[in-house]
């Protein structure tokens, strides 16, 4: 998707936006570039993957008389609320990167992107701590074992699928930050990256509620 976004900038005058030369101009989508529309299509399909997982979770939980078996630890709400706050902060640093990209402040774009990537890396560290333990015991040591109960399995499946998104998103940010620093990434590319990262935040908001709080 980002490759589409960086398509030859020389063509953007006679077509709709950078990358727009891959699609015929269409008044219905106006200035939305093909790269941006492509990212939205991907995000929608990804949203339904998460939707499927959350639906399976809802049905399993709604249909079981005992969800939380004896000996299984509860999920740490306060710690995860901190992780949620971290992702929200990284969404703000991302909108700052997008806004600066739109205004052409390349050095600031790189700085905000690196801060966003740092947020992603800290989130992953927090998730590692939660699973396996770094400074205190992790859930795997406290008796939450994948495959032992629907509670454990759905927890690991949903949060790790989200974690995989944070991981790939952080890599995507770092690559784009390097491209931006080198003058290769334009505002459209940063905006498309922003869509992906905000989506990861949006999904976490739902995961936090359904898996941790309810």
């Amino acid at each position: 998707m980002s490759a589409t976004a960086t398509a030859d900038a020389g063509h953007h005058e006679e077509h709709h936006g950078i990358g727009g030369h891959l699609l015929p101009s269409d008044p219905a989508v106006g200035l939305a570039t093909s790269g941006k529309i492509g990212m939205w299509i991907f995000l929608l399909s990804d949203a339904f993957s998460f939707g499927g997982l959350l639906l399976a979770y809802g049905i399993l939980r709604g249909g079981s008389s005992i969800w939380h078996h004896e000996g299984e630890p509860s999920l740490g709400i306060n710690f995860t609320a901190g992780l949620t706050f971290l992702l929200i902060c990284s969404s703000v640093t991302m909108v700052m990167a997008v806004a600066n990209a739109a205004e052409g402040n390349r050095s600031k774009v790189t700085m905000w992107l690196l801060l966003t990537a740092l947020g992603g890396a800290l989130f992953l560290t927090g998730q590692f701590q939660e699973y396996f333990g770094i400074w205190s015991e992790g859930l795997t040591h406290e008796g939450l074992t994948f495959g032992r109960s629907a509670y454990a399995s759905t927890f690991y499946l949903i949060t790790s699928f989200h974690g995989a998104h944070v991981f790939s998103g952080t890599l995507y940010i770092l690559i784009t930050a390097a491209r931006s620093a080198g003058g290769k990434a334009d505002a459209n590319e940063i905006e498309i990256l922003g869509l992906f990262w905000h989506f990861v935040d949006l999904i976490w908001i739902l995961v936090f509620t359904f898996v941790y709080l309810l």
Binding site: G10, G17, N105, R106
Partner: peptide
């Protein structure tokens, strides 16, 4: 991939958002 597409190049998408202030984001 052209090398003359710096971040500073005003694009259609860029000008669309350039006028946006940071305030709504902070709210």
């Amino acid at each position: 991939m052209s090398t003359d597409a710096p971040t500073s190049a005003p694009t259609a998408a860029a000008t669309e958002h350039a006028a946006h202030s940071r305030r709504p984001y902070l709210v």
